[in-house]
Design a protein around this nucleic acid. Structure first.
Lengths: 105, 105
DNA sequence: TCGATAATTTTACTATTATAGAAATATGGA
DNA sequence: TCCATATTTCTATAATAGTAAAATTATCGA
């Protein structure tokens, strides 16, 4: 992964509304959630949410598929994984987990 | 962890110079590196580097200790760990590793 | 205490990002 | 086709962040 790619992904996450969307989608699992539900859950105006969803999407952190009148968004596991790998590369004397055993469920 | 804390940490990482510093320090391990060396390695002017180190420091991602005329910076494992935990909370049906097995050394 | 070196603070300028109303577009049902 | 619903695009304004030169502070050795 290139520095700029990682910066794009981190910039996408470094904003309260987007981080809340991201975490909501992490919890939602692979089914994800339609834009309208996300807007309602997090109380974000539709136009604003669209702006943020696009940021997360361009950053490769979420996917979307149309489903009738709605568009369903979900976490893009690969993107998240690549980012974490990049962040922790060469850490901990070759053991890639910085804190695997301490991490809560 | 609170949303704002996580946003602060992610904002700190979401910038090319700071991400390069962060990754350099990840590689450096617990010994860390003095500011001057970091500035030389990454070709960043001292005043600019100080600004970025402060951001990383306020975000709880790095520590510093004076060592003679130099100040040595190093990764703050706990801060990094808490951030990752927050990001991936409740993911993967209770398995906290999003991509543990796929992560490169 | 003086000079040299290391890092920080101050400051000003530039650039980027967030927000959300209003209008536009896309879909499905009557 | 026409209407209601879901989301996006356009747009303008407000707020935040990045850069780095110049001056300042801290430490060490002579």
């Amino acid at each position: 992964m290139e520095v700029k790619t990682a910066v794009t992904a981190l910039t996408a996450l470094a904003q309260e509304s987007r981080l809340r969307v991201f975490r909501l989608l992490v919890r939602a699992g692979s089914d994800g959630q339609p834009a309208g539900e996300i807007a309602d859950s997090l109380d974000i105006p539709p136009a604003t949410l669209t702006f943020h969803l696009k940021e997360l999407s361009h950053a490769g952190l979420i996917d979307s598929t149309r489903e009738g009148r709605s568009i369903r968004y979900s976490i893009r596991e690969q993107g998240v994984c690549e980012l974490l790998t990049y962040l922790l590369q060469d850490c901990c004397n070759g053991q890639p987990e910085l804190c695997g055993s301490k991490r809560k469920k």
